[in-house]
Design a protein around this nucleic acid. Sequence first.
DNA 1: TCCGCTTTGTCCTGTGACTGGAGAAAGTCT
DNA 2: AGACTTTCTCCAGTCACAGGACAAAGCGGA
Lengths: 396, 396
Amino acid sequence: MRRMTARPANTHQARLLRLLRDSGPNSRAQLGDQVDLSRSKLAVEVDRLLETGLVVADGLAASRGGRRSHNIRLAPALRFLGVDIGATSVDVAVTNAELEVLGHITQPMDVREGPVAVFEQVLSMTAKLRASGLAEGFDGAGIGVPGPVRFPEGVPVAPPIMPGWDGFPVREALSQELGCPVMVDNDVNLMAMGEQHAGVARSVADFLCVKIGTGVGCGIVVGGEVYRGTTGSAGDIGHIQVEPEGRPCACGNRGCLEAHFSGAALARDAEEAARQGRSAELAGRLADTGILTSVDVAAAAAAGDATALDLIRAGGNRTGQVIAGLVSFFNPGLVVIGGGVTGLGHTLLAAIRTQVYRQSLPLATGNLPIVLGELGPTAGVIGAARLISDHLFSPA
Amino acid sequence: MRRMTARPANTHQARLLRLLRDSGPNSRAQLGDQVDLSRSKLAVEVDRLLETGLVVADGLAASRGGRRSHNIRLAPALRFLGVDIGATSVDVAVTNAELEVLGHITQPMDVREGPVAVFEQVLSMTAKLRASGLAEGFDGAGIGVPGPVRFPEGVPVAPPIMPGWDGFPVREALSQELGCPVMVDNDVNLMAMGEQHAGVARSVADFLCVKIGTGVGCGIVVGGEVYRGTTGSAGDIGHIQVEPEGRPCACGNRGCLEAHFSGAALARDAEEAARQGRSAELAGRLADTGILTSVDVAAAAAAGDATALDLIRAGGNRTGQVIAGLVSFFNPGLVVIGGGVTGLGHTLLAAIRTQVYRQSLPLATGNLPIVLGELGPTAGVIGAARLISDHLFSPA
DNA sequence: TCCGCTTTGTCCTGTGACTGGAGAAAGTCT
DNA sequence: AGACTTTCTCCAGTCACAGGACAAAGCGGA
């Protein structure tokens, strides 16, 4: 099968492609209403896009009181690959050009095994998706990694939790393997893009997306665009100090947020509580599986275990304390909480909200929703697909 | 004298005006090199600008080996007014279209006296500048106020330290009085714009500008543009909590940065130290004037007073602690420290740097300059002039 | 002083982008 | 069947712009 080779020739075409991606099939007239071009000019650009094969006209829509319109839509054969590499798991998904997830696989994994091993796994997952008939090839791929990335080159830089990846040419390597364009970004940024595209953050210009997984990070969206900072490390809030002489952190400092609350810290604290006999519920679960995760803590809390609830509340307070500072500073229109620990649900959210609403000024919090992400683990892969489609749907 | 009435008719003209503003007089050929237009098109636009009177061609430049070029420059009669209202003082300045300060007056004042009284003072200062022959009238004015502003309307909203100003139509009122367009912004944002235009932040895309005066605020520049947040309160870092059960703050909370370190807090702590006999130096100064300010503390520190030095270091540590968090989050390319307390100089800066470099990750701090602002009190008024010129030098 | 050479600025023409209107095609409603 | 809508196409005219030819103005060497 021939893959997408053409790119939009000008900004009008790029605009149209994104419009079709974000709002689905449209008639020429509907497109004209949204794009501020004369109908004649628009028809020309649509015709050119039809020639390239990026969009197709299939069938006629129902009449709305006059001549029936042609359905203009993105080529249905286009396929994007979304890869979300976490600290302990990989998500791989296939989407169509409208970024709808057609297939999605999750597998456990350990980033510390290094890029070669992880890539092998990603490729085998990709092959599985291909074999299921969802895609014969890919027109583009987006990939998220759990650490800072030099964005233009698509290369991780000095990632604390994945030391073997420093400088590894992720973009180039994956592009060669897949034979299609690839873009790389921080996993947190992709989550933000996912929630922006298909989740709770639609139509919000400025928002924060706090991801609490194994580590803690924050996606920053300014004017609808992800902000990555000068060296690509913007949003790295896991190492903000929350306690002057607090717990030691992997980064070498003490009292980092991540050392006090994160998936890893929560698991550690829960195991400690279980061993010290402070929670029969947790101790039982530990005996069952030999290990505890935030899922166990969530279950224990749901069962009414006081220690589990305390752990969640304490973590939420810590997180809320940091978010309160960020809200004062950034004055976002929305704060999204996502990542593995969202299973902790309302208890966590309530603690965060309490801190933020108490500590930040009313002008900043007055109309500020603080909500859980609504896409869960698909946020990352949708964000990844969106990343590459933003790239491909821009003038060459 | 007739004032500026025309506005650039298109983006090319706007671009040319800003270019002339930022890099002074230019020949047509030089403009063409910077603007990516054909010489013919450029000539047309320049001619149209000449017709409007916004720019003039005066004289010929020295030859550079060929035909001598015409000097194209912004109309020398254009005048902008920059007003910077602080908590305890007002700055008013006149600039030409290139934003060079032609005259500058500072006077003490108390914002809490309310907008009417303050406006009276501003107008009398303006009259003084006018009387000195620097300007017959103004083509535009920018004004900064020490609190959040609903930017599009130019109206302060819920400003903590200037309660009487809430909702006062600053923009409209001043525009009527002066008979020219007016733009209003937070004083901290204007300081950032000033340092960006003529100070240490030239050619830095993403930076933070921390202003420590009576209160503490932070200007945020993203991609060369000031970021104001959803409700205009972005950068309000004075009320970030630095100590769980710390000093009570005017905002009603406890432990805010501003309550622990700011011009006001420093003066309070210094007076306390003087009364308690912890510093002969400070006590002497208090006896002299009956009141202490950061200037006295700076002088005492310069004289080697240990208490004064301790106060500065403690404040710097607190501030550095907050800035470290912001650096992790925002990953700026530069941090500028400005405001009244910059008189504390290197002692303060060293304490801040120590905290930031210790607490933030190397990737964010590796190439991060932390410097004092170089414009001092003129940063605000230059920023104000720049604000209105950005507005006027954009397509109508 | 004349002649090349350089730089600056102006003029002119051709091309492509774009608009807006006329009108055809295809439908609904009375 | 006729009036009215909506969608889409076609066409002619306008404007933006590039690029080249050329004039103006200066320099330096022969």
